[in-house]
Write a protein that binds this DNA or RNA. Structure first.
Length: 436
RNA sequence: GCGGCUGUAGCUCAACGGUAGAGCACUCCCCUGUCACGGGAGAGGCCGUGGGAUCAACACCCAUCAGCCGCG
């Protein structure tokens, strides 16, 4: 029944880390190559917020990821299909991906209206304790007595309410793939359930079985269409923070012959790296692995070291829009009063367009006055920063100095306290002056 | 000159006979497959000035100063 096809993408590994799972390679897609490890830029609604595709290309982006749920609701996948598919529609010539909508089962479901992220700070994070206290329960209830959320998971799929007009929609694995087929990205993802870190083990296990069943449905459906020869399908590993479930998931999916693999779900901050390792020791080595939704520098280092090839994250753009910049000494809030008259670049030594042409004082002014250009300039910088960080990791792998690079970089980035950032900047500026 | 209205947080305005709140601005924090020009915390006022009645006034009365609007 299933049509056997060769994969629409190929993956070649050029160099591996010694004593770790990390590797550098190339993914060839119908719309061009991706040098890995690579950071994938997020353009949920077929646009990287505030950034034109020309800017994106200039700042070094290789690939863009859009979202099935959002594009299905608006403008609708048929329109995108008629207009030539995602890449043509948004005028991005390079490789594209779509996420399946599985994350929205979490963000619009268990996490909706609460202060929950897919990350918990650690094993004892109070956020993983039962959250349905009498207070939150009454606060989050609507008339019918169910918790207030706008996504609801059942055995066959997820019921979503539109965030645009409240209308009700139902995604099954097949429906998600059909939409992604129409949107037409080079790489698409299986429809999974991204579970909340607050869910107990029983639920994680139950959800995992369901996600595996859905993965099989997605694969069978996709392979039965003509799109299997032009769009690669990645299965998604889940299992929460539990070693046995993660390994079970990796085994189940590895047996399914996807074109590549996503690693999704929730992690404990302190052991995300080991969770990724559990999985990547099992997944087939010759297929690309995409760690979904990860983007903090320290997390990226851990993930690359432990064998992930692709990462996407909204952090560079969302932080940019809300006034937080990545710098080599850690993150800063550019809207802070102390930057009002700061004549320096956003991050000393940064080669991005924004840093080369604008001052902190100017960006601080744009942020404070709510100007649109603030989000654009900050996003250009943050995207450049993260994309190039991953580029540097790739280079370091090729040059056999990944671990040295990691150590030096994180020493500066993580151990630097906020208070000492300004001193460090000052010293950098002074030493740079002497060298010139 | 006469009459009326108004003086409360940086700004625009609430409130109440028992020692004041909001929005914006300000200071700072947060953001990990975007609900995202988003979320949160904090600082800030002897209620124009001087009297008076009252157990008690920002609130009532008198005077005064300032601003606005009319009529001269």
């Amino acid at each position: 029944m299933a049509i056997m096809t060769t994969s629409p993408i190929s993956f070649a590994i050029h160099k591996k880390l010694k004593n770790a799972l990390g590797r550098a390679g190339t993914i060839v897609t119908p719309h061009g190559e991706i040098q890995t490890p690579a950071f994938v830029t997020v353009g949920t609604k077929a646009t990287v917020k505030g950034i034109t595709p020309e800017m994106l290309k200039d700042l070094g982006a290789q690939v863009v990821l859009a979202n099935t749920y959002h594009l299905y609701l608006q403008p609708g996948e048929k329109i995108i299909n008629t207009l030539g598919g995602l890449g043509k529609f948004m005028n991005w010539q390079g490789p594209t991906m779509t996420d399946s909508g599985g994350f929205q089962a979490f963000s619009l479901g268990a996490a909706y209206g609460k202060n929950i992220t897919k990350f918990v700070a650690g094993k004892d994070d109070p956020k993983i304790l039962p959250h349905f206290t009498p207070e939150t329960l009454s606060k989050n209830k609507v008339e019918d007595g169910s918790p207030m959320n706008i996504a609801k998971v059942d055995e066959n799929g997820v019921m979503f309410k539109s965030i645009i007009d409240g209308s009700v929609h139902y995604f099954t694995p097949e429906k998600s793939i059909q939409i992604q087929n129409d949107i037409g990205a080079d790489i698409i993802f299986a429809f999974d359930e991204c579970t909340s870190p607050q869910e107990p083990y029983n639920y994680q296990a139950k959800s995992l079985d369901r996600t595996h069943r859905w993965a099989k449905n997605c694969l069978e459906y996709h392979r039965s269409t003509k799109h299997a020869s032009t769009q690669a399908l990645f299965g998604i590993v889940q299992g929460g923070r539990h070693e046995d479930l993660r390994k079970e998931s990796a085994k189940a999916l590895a047996a399914m012959d996807f074109d590549g693999y996503g690693i999704g779900g929730s992690f404990a901050k302190e052991d995300m790296g080991s969770a990724v390792k559990w999985v990547n020791e099992i997944l087939p080595e010759d297929k690309p692995r995409h760690l979904l939704g990860i983007g903090e520098p320290a997390d990226l280092f851990d993930a690359v070291e432990n064998g992930c090839d692709l990462f996407d994250c909204v952090l560079p753009t969302r932080n940019g829009r809300t006034g937080t910049l990545f710098t080599k000494y850690g993150k800063i809030n550019i809207g802070n009063a102390k930057y009002k008259d700061d004549a320096g670049p956003f991050d000393e030594g940064c080669e991005c367009y924004a840093c080369k042409n604008y001052t902190r004082a100017y960006l601080s002014h744009l942020v404070r006055s709510g100007e649109m250009l603030a989000g654009t300039l900050a996003s250009i910088h943050n995207l450049y920063f993260i994309i190039h960080l991953v580029d540097e990791m790739r280079k370091a792998i090729h040059e056999d100095r990944f671990f040295e690079f990691k150590k030096e970089y994180l020493h500066l980035y993580v151990t630097m306290s906020r208070a000492s950032i300004d001193t460090a900047r000052h010293d950098f500026a002074k030493s740079h002056e002497k060298n010139v």
